[in-house]
């Protein structure tokens, strides 16, 4: 029996919404796959495209950026800048031939523990058939 591929995922979660939403999932004891290592950032607006490229470069099979819903940003509008920047990066990654499933953005509010678990479950399910990400991985 071959062991099922377990993707490694880096998730940039904003402190106020998505990290709090993930905390709520915990408080509510919602089970989800353990493939994601969260990195708390203050705002999705602080996630530089370099962070995402670097995560792939260091061997991530998938990268998630999650922030507050539009209009709910703790810092008023950081998520709007993030949305624009990430749309561009997503197009670029797609253009060079990386599987589009590998890079995801989501809006998860502090009240959306359920949504957070759904996002993670879906992401893991989508990544499993793709196998390891070697295209951008250093020495890959």
């Amino acid at each position: 029996m071959t062991e099922e591929f377990e993707p490694k995922i880096v998730a940039f979660l904003c402190k106020w919404c998505s990290s709090a939403g993930s905390d709520l999932a915990g408080v509510s004891r919602m089970e989800y796959p353990s493939n994601v290592i969260p990195i708390q950032v203050l705002c999705s607006g602080s996630v530089s495209p370099l962070y995402i490229l670097s995560a792939f470069n260091k061997g991530a099979d998938g990268v998630l950026v999650s922030g507050c819903h539009p209009g709910d940003c703790h810092y008023i509008k950081g998520n709007y800048y993030s949305r624009r920047r990430i749309a561009l990066l997503k197009e670029l990654l797609n253009f060079i031939g990386l599987e589009p499933e590998r890079f995801k953005m989501s809006w998860v509010s502090a009240a959306e523990g359920t949504k957070y678990t759904e996002v993670i479950k879906e992401f893991v399910d989508e990544l499993k058939p793709l196998g390891a990400q070697t295209k951008l991985r250093r020495n890959g």
């Binding site: 470069n57 295209k135 250093r138 020495n139």
Partner: peptide
């Protein structure tokens, strides 16, 4: 070290994508 100096495929990709994103 966002990108290694050595011209390997992965590092070249990261370099050129950073350049493209910075020129958007």
């Amino acid at each position: 070290k966002w990108v290694e100096k050595s011209p390997t495929t992965s590092e070249n990709f990261i370099y050129h994508m950073v350049r493209a994103i910075h020129l958007a």
